[in-house]
Design a protein around this nucleic acid. Structure first.
Lengths: 324, 324
DNA sequence: GTGTAATAAAGAACCGGTTCCGTAGTCACA
DNA sequence: TGTGACTACGGAACCGGTTCTTTATTACAC
């Protein structure tokens, strides 16, 4: 419940009313030695006035705080929101300060600096790529930091096993025995894990199969335009995209051209089931990834491990209508 | 830039190094009267040590703070993330503490109470429905509060003009001259604005047209199952859903049954363009809504208006493939 | 009955800022 | 030269907590 008074009641008020020193109230709050009698008395008064300690004063005195800055590349993505839910569900005492970087390195850098000036107690960075500048700033930071999204040496991190994912997709491709494959990839400079790692196993599997690779980006419209061009000049019976979103763009191009290849994507279970045909996709468990991120963060913050921590998450291929 | 030292430098350190009183440094920081000479001196030292004031100490002393709690019903929605972007883009001095309520009234209530105990400077509540308990807590709060999503009397709010939206859709329906219409609605107890207001104009337009209304919920799977049942027993040439998500569920049922009615939805431009056929939908500008929310919040916080503020946002119908 | 330890509580210092108050110095004007 | 206004700045108090030190009280053992 919330006090309806306009002025916040402080520890001093409680102490005065209870006729004790404020240090006694503080001990009461933090489990120090307090007699049964005063404990009950303070109990009553605290309940009556709905007293809650001022977190600013606490953080100021204790020189630490329980606000963790979480920088996400975007919010309108199931992957991200699942990770955030994982964080939430494991959380007890911390507060997450979520900052959207809008997939922009400049904003990401600004966010990191702002979080520092806001005296957060640590940072969890979900990111697609780290610029040198960001790397430097993170290295200089005294805060506990964990990252997700890229396999950055020297940083505590949780990563997806994109190599294994590509391998699994590669194996599955062979059961489909395609004649001509279109690969829709992204620039490795934009995202190394996605652009390179995911495609290693796929390209290995396609060694003896005709295929064409084009570099597009993460946006639906770009993927649509780029794939349209490729499909106009060539016929494909299988399209593999670096993300589900990219594949959805390609689907629209294909249908516009009255073509009906098979499709395979990577990523968010969300898209997979809203498009028709439902999309065959290699899926990662981002919810569990969020939990692992939080566990790793706590370990880094509380145990201060000497060597760099690295947690690997894996996923599995879900076959749906688009490859039937 | 961030200081690489492990200990934070304080205003006292700066004052000592600069050989002035800390009150002088404070005045320097806040634009009080400081001579050119000392200004330059402190400038140099602040830059050298990367000093940033401790926000906890500031908030403690100033008895106010620039953290605004934002409670959202869900994060994996374009509407929500667009609103958040609107908030972000207008923001200068504030920090948004985003809390996900996971469309659960209990968590929403808990979030409101937690934000209070964290001493936020105000609350922006995006919500689908207010329980009596939440209403009471909000009324008792001394904080500036604005809400979005429901037309709640007695609260400062930004709302969507769902009545006008339904009217516009109603007019459009008549140009389609449908024979049998399926309406997929939600319980007005779950969402009054969506469940009732959006359908007033639609039902008026269908006064002389055969139609069936079923109550489903906001989830894709539920909508899919509910619409499947209806479509099995009856043939529809137009399906109107309370949200785009609901319509996507219905699309999947229709295609599974080899039916190809026209579809109209409400809401997020996201879905509309990822599904095929692209969805005709009444769209609201959530980005602009976010901006209006923030403006309204500032007005409420800073000007403390006596009478309840109410801002109405409107949108427009976007015709796409699904009604061609 | 006295010495000692344990417990309960008070009091003061401190965290890092902002702000109020007082004062010294400068300048202008009568 | 004296008065008033203004600027620059130092010192102290304060915000609301936590924590360390000190003191009072009680209990227990010898």
């Amino acid at each position: 419940m919330i006090n309806s008074m306009n002025k916040k009641v402080t520890i001093n008020d409680i102490a005065t009313i209870a006729n004790v020193a404020k240090s006694t109230v503080s001990r009461y709050l933090n489990g120090g030695s307090v007699s049964e009698h005063t404990r009950l008395k303070i109990d009553r008064i605290v309940a009556q006035y709905n007293y809650t300690p001022n977190t600013f004063a606490q953080s100021l005195k204790q020189q630490k705080n329980h606000t963790i800055g979480v920088i996400v590349p975007r919010l309108d993505s199931i992957a991200q929101s699942d990770m955030l839910r994982g964080l939430d569900d494991l959380n007890k005492d911390d507060t997450f300060l979520i900052v959207n970087a809008y997939q922009d390195a400049k904003r990401e850098l600004a966010a990191i600096e702002k979080l520092h000036s806001q005296n957060v107690g640590g940072i969890i960075l979900l990111t697609a790529n780290l610029t040198d500048e960001i790397r430097d700033v993170l290295k200089a930071s005294p805060l506990p930091i964990v990252i997700q999204g890229q396999d950055e040496p020297n940083f505590h991190r949780v990563i997806m096993d994109d190599l294994a994912a590509g391998k699994a997709v590669g194996q599955y491709i062979q059961t489909l025995a395609p004649k001509n494959v279109l690969l829709l990839n992204v620039d490795t400079k934009i995202d190394q894990a996605v652009g390179h790692d995911r495609f290693v196993g796929i390209k290995a599997a396609l060694a003896k199969t005709p295929h064409q690779e084009i570099i597009t980006d993460f946006k639906l419209d770009t993927a649509k335009a780029d794939s349209y061009q490729a499909m106009q000049t060539d016929d494909f019976d299988l399209v593999i995209g670096a993300t589900d979103r990219i594949v959805v763009g390609a689907m629209q191009s294909a249908f516009a051209l009255k073509q009906h290849p098979k499709f395979i994507g990577f990523g968010q279970s969300f898209f997979s089931e809203t498009v028709s045909p439902n999309l065959t996709s290699f899926e990662f468990n981002f919810y569990e990834t969020g939990k692992q991120l939080y566990r790793l963060f706590l370990k880094v913050r509380d145990d201060k491990p000497v060597d760099v921590q690295r947690v690997i998450m894996n996923g599995h291929l879900v076959v749906r209508e688009s490859t039937e």
